[in-house]
Amino acid sequence: MGLLNRLDDPYEGGGIVLGKIEELLNWGRSKSDWYLHFGLACCAIEFMAMNASHFDFMRFGTIPRTSPRQADFIMVTGTVTFKMAERIKILYEQMAEPKYVISVGSCSNSGGPYWEHGYHVLKGVDRIIPVDVYIPGCPPRPEAFEEGMMKLQEKINKQAIFNKRKLLGTE
């Protein structure tokens, strides 16, 4: 899929692409996602490695933002404790729509190793904010981050902008 792939089939030899306006907007949106990096624990170190020269996360068009108001999605990397949970909720509410959440690592997916006796660990960030993509692992490998990012782009590409519940291509 993807808008530019249709260039292989030019309309009357002219390099014209026919498509919906939503597809064009989604194409732009999915290729320049700015994220609020929410580094919490071990996963944040893997994410630093992901951001550095070897894996180069920015080739997905992502730029780290420190303010939630400029961010398209929030990357929750690490264990969410109760002390932190309230802050995450406040930050998420400050973000402008459309907004997405990637939950990275076992801890923020489900509590992870702290599931059973963690009296101060929130058992999954999806208990307070809605999550779009879960990346498993403790901590996930940088390849898993790439996969998660691609899944998010896939999701954005399918979304109808004016009716968020409807998927593109389905009538």
Binding site: L40, A41, G78, T79, T81, K83, M84, R87, P113, Y114, H117, G118, Y119, H120, V121
Partner: peptide
Amino acid sequence: LGYLHRSFEKH
């Protein structure tokens, strides 16, 4: 402190 207190000693 305490924003990453993961109850290590209890575990």
